[in-house]
Design a protein around this nucleic acid. Structure first.
Lengths: 185, 185
DNA sequence: TCCCCACTGTACCTATCGGTACAATGTTAT
DNA sequence: ATAACATTGTACCGATAGGTACAGTGGGGA
């Protein structure tokens, strides 16, 4: 008996490991220990090692946000897309029980390794949200401010709810933000 | 010639190193390299090693926030203290060029090592801010929401401005938050 | 059926990890 | 002046870091 993986199966496991331990904290031995995947398989799928693993995770996250959040914000009905964003974000971050890996990477030196992916993630999020807010009737300047406020608020709520070990803080913050953006459109 | 340090001189240097590299990323050799302080001195002042160093840094941060932010929010004129908070916070975080070490520690496994200090930092900040907001005329429920919103907003703005390498995002977010809390009192 | 090759586990590599030991240095109190 | 002591740099420790080499395994196409 031998368990055989595909690259696509491995990425979510890697993602959780990096989320919990950070880039530097996620050592190869801890990765194999938590995912159950041996070094042999890991280096078979990611010859570039840890850096390629984390890069693949970031690309996977980006793809998910693109289809679930950014694209609807840009293309669909603005009010609906914004409303859906709060639901999907709360779901994705497990009501504050899961952090944003991109935000975490941005905070320390890890940023230098993945500078482009990290910048893109936040630029595209704020721009998509601003686009939706403008279609919903906001002036450009106000839409920009509100979009940044929304994204900041989400990231900050993740920090705070983790620090306090209280997912309710996250859900509550999302509600407050949702009301605020709703009131402005 | 021999350079002689005191514990109090070392802590700020350690703080910057942990801020830039994170707890796991701050290896002993990188610490000595960046601070210019050798292992001998480091272990003389902090026999508990890296963990004691980071603990001392957190205690130092706590003391600074206590006297510069929390105490005024609790004891001084509410409007003045809140206004001073924005100025001091912008200054402390160097207009988004410096991160919040406590928030960064909260995001990964490092939280488990410093759980109490991390929780305290955010609880005391939100409670002090809520106290000031209530003295400024807010109802308790609204004050609680606004206080959480303020602290979340600051943390999120630090993440976003670092991700985008744009300190203006931070300063702008502080202004928006200041206006919002001002309008509610 | 059997062969090929994608996939896996194990053993091993060097560099660096956090930490210790200790002799040398210089400052201070007497 | 000198004894006592706080502070420092250097050499060293076992453990673990990220990464490589490679032989074995087993499922799918011919």
């Amino acid at each position: 008996m031998k368990t055989v993986y595909e690259r696509a199966d491995i990425i979510p496991l890697l993602a959780e490991t990096f989320r919990e331990l950070g880039y530097e904290g996620a050592t190869l031995s801890r990765i194999t220990e938590r995912t159950g995947i041996g070094k042999g398989s890991l280096y078979h799928f990611f010859p570039g090692g840890k850096e390629e693993m984390a890069g693949a995770v970031l690309a996977d996250i980006d793809a998910w946000f693109e289809q679930a959040i950014y694209r609807p914000l840009r293309d669909d009905d603005a009010h609906q897309a914004i409303a859906a964003m709060w639901v999907n974000v709360n779901d994705y971050f497990r009501g504050g029980g899961r952090i944003c890996l991109v935000g975490a990477f941005a905070l320390d030196d890890t940023r230098e390794r993945f500078s482009e992916a990290i910048g893109d993630y936040f630029i595209r999020w704020t721009e998509a949200l601003r686009s939706a807010l403008m279609r919903a009737g906001c002036a450009e300047k106000k839409a920009q401010t509100l979009a940044e406020e929304g994204v900041c608020g989400i990231q900050g709520a993740l920090v705070l709810s983790r620090a306090l070990r209280d997912g309710a803080v996250f859900t509550r913050a999302l509600e407050t933000l949702a009301n605020r953006l709703e009131a402005a459109t």
